[in-house]
Design a protein around this nucleic acid. Sequence first.
DNA 1: TCCCTTGCGTTCGTTTTTCGAACTCAGCTA
DNA 2: TAGCTGAGTTCGAAAAACGAACGCAAGGGA
Lengths: 148, 148
Amino acid sequence: MPYSSFASMPCTLSRPAALLGERWTLLLLRQIFLGTRRFEDFQATMDISRSVLTDRLNVLLQENVLKRVPYHEDGRTRHEYRLTEKGRDLYPVLMALRTWGERWMAPEEEESFQLHHRDCGGGVRAKVECTECAAELTARDVQVTARA
Amino acid sequence: MPYSSFASMPCTLSRPAALLGERWTLLLLRQIFLGTRRFEDFQATMDISRSVLTDRLNVLLQENVLKRVPYHEDGRTRHEYRLTEKGRDLYPVLMALRTWGERWMAPEEEESFQLHHRDCGGGVRAKVECTECAAELTARDVQVTARA
DNA sequence: TCCCTTGCGTTCGTTTTTCGAACTCAGCTA
DNA sequence: TAGCTGAGTTCGAAAAACGAACGCAAGGGA
């Protein structure tokens, strides 16, 4: 079972994990959520090799996480990479990573950017909750059952 | 800037993203949250090569996400891999992946396991909320500012 | 005691990925 | 026509992953 076969497992956790678990993919998504949209800018800010960048962008296009959108600059038509709705919906994944990073990987130093709720200025955090009673859940509060 | 240098970037999103963005690491964590604890069981259920499994387990031990715990079986002392508090706190990351997978990568088929809140039987989902007003947030509701 | 089994890795030669520098190409611009 | 720029593509070298075989310590049984 090669790594790639997880992409077709009947598990709604395995497939996203296999997709985002490829090298560079999470870092690429971070950059996109921070506003980067062009090939050259990804390449410059992340210092990823151009061939791997091409590959990762293509995978995300194929998965419909990103879309290519034409735009004009200096009278020329070019394309930029933007999140689809499916892509934007990955926000909780990135925020969960950051919430964890804030708690467990921030020794003294501060974060390189800050996030605030536009409406009230509050902070941002990811959490897991019950769809019925809205209680916040940890792994211990959740029962796992194999599907029938 | 090699991939590994993201592990020391002053960004609380980059570092977790680089750590969990290595191949197999997210899938390994999924398996751990599902209850797998021993080398042989990881190897058998994921079909990962033994050398890479050794490496990934060691990285997670070093990062203090996992710990080795001795246990007895057949009168012999062995060790198993278990989550630390830091590791357990990754639960929202995995649940965010799953919530996304349920919405965007579950065509007709069902998930391979189900999750329920032990207390009330409700479903489980990840979300992002404001630490002040508790509103649920999307990327559009959040303002990013570079640190001073 | 000697041999077998088990769990947990380690080694090593082969195949994939990644790297990085150079190259290509299309569409302006001078 | 020549040059520039953004967006890739190509290709040889280096790193990572693969997988089959090997190592090893701790029992158990003969």
